[in-house]
């Protein structure tokens, strides 16, 4: 490569970085706006572009949001619920996805199509029947009602199946020749190789349940069981909204999601090539 080529490349890279920085500004602006609004005093105009910055800065909004609306308890509820749903989903989905992707049995594709089919079921359809089931089980206002219906999603099965399918058949053949049974195959070969997939599913499931709103709203009506989004909704007054506290709560809602993403991201960067393919 000649020097001028390298210079052109450098210039192009610089332009790309500038463009990407501009893009990053667009995507982060709302979060900054949320923080700015969260720090405003209640009577400062919120929607007025002339008053974007908080003046004076009300750090106590976060404290008020935490205590007044019981966000502390709600935060813990959300954390527990989301973690439980994520753990259960990873476990049951990976087992089922293994059966769909790496085992051979009659009727496999038909059963999978049924799974796939239910992915398409709009939430509105199952809402009432599910609610009636919860009522019959006397699970209204319980952690089971928050966790269990969300823990067997066909989505996870579908996602992991796709990841499991990308694992080269030769590795599996070799393992089988070495006398590995399906369980060993699952534990020692497929799940370790599919760690990026598992991490991805973990992030999605965690984020999904962390922001889940409609279902928790319907199955809980005791404050002690409210998840964060439901508790946040209590800020949304009947006729006028307390924007700063709502935004303070929204910031609290967002932080763990960023944490979850950062954590999961490390996993899929160190994915397949760092794992047992080399080892």
């Amino acid at each position: 490569m000649t020097g001028s080529n390298r210079a052109a490349l450098g210039l192009r890279d610089a332009l790309v970085v500038v463009a990407m920085t501009l893009l990053a500004l667009t995507t982060t602006a709302p979060f900054l706006w949320m923080i700015a609004t969260a720090l405003k005093s209640p009577d400062q105009p919120i929607l007025d572009p002339a008053h974007v910055l908080p003046r004076p800065v009300h750090w106590d909004n976060f404290g008020r949001a935490w205590t007044e609306a019981g966000l502390g308890r709600a935060f813990a509820n959300s954390l527990f619920t989301s973690a439980a749903i994520t753990a259960l989903t990873l476990l049951t989905s990976s087992l089922a996805a293994f059966a769909f992707a790496r085992l051979h049995w009659r009727g496999r594709d038909t059963v999978f199509l049924v799974y796939l089919g239910t992915l398409m079921v709009p939430t509105a359809v199952t809402l009432i029947p599910l609610f009636l089931v919860m009522r019959e089980l006397r699970w209204i206002n319980s952690y089971q009602a928050l966790v269990l219906p969300a823990s067997f999603s066909p989505y996870g099965v579908f996602l992991l199946r796709q990841f499991f399918l990308t694992i080269p058949a030769e590795i599996e053949e070799a393992a089988r020749l070495d006398g590995c049974g399906p369980l060993d195959l699952y534990r020692r070969i497929v799940t370790p190789l599919a760690r990026p997939g598992l991490a991805t599913l973990a992030i999605f499931t965690f984020l999904g349940s962390w922001t889940s709103f409609l279902w928790p709203l319907i199955v809980t009506h005791r404050q002690e069981l409210f998840t964060l989004p439901v508790a946040l909704a209590s800020f949304q007054e009947l006729h006028s909204i307390q924007w700063p506290l709502l935004m303070a709560g929204s910031v609290l809602l967002t932080l763990p999601m960023i944490a979850a993403f950062l954590l999961g991201q490390r996993h899929f960067i160190h994915g397949i090539q760092m794992g047992s393919v080399k080892g």
Partner: peptide, 8 residues
Amino acid sequence: SICTGIGI
């Protein structure tokens, strides 16, 4: 994608 909810 994670800044969901009424705020956004």
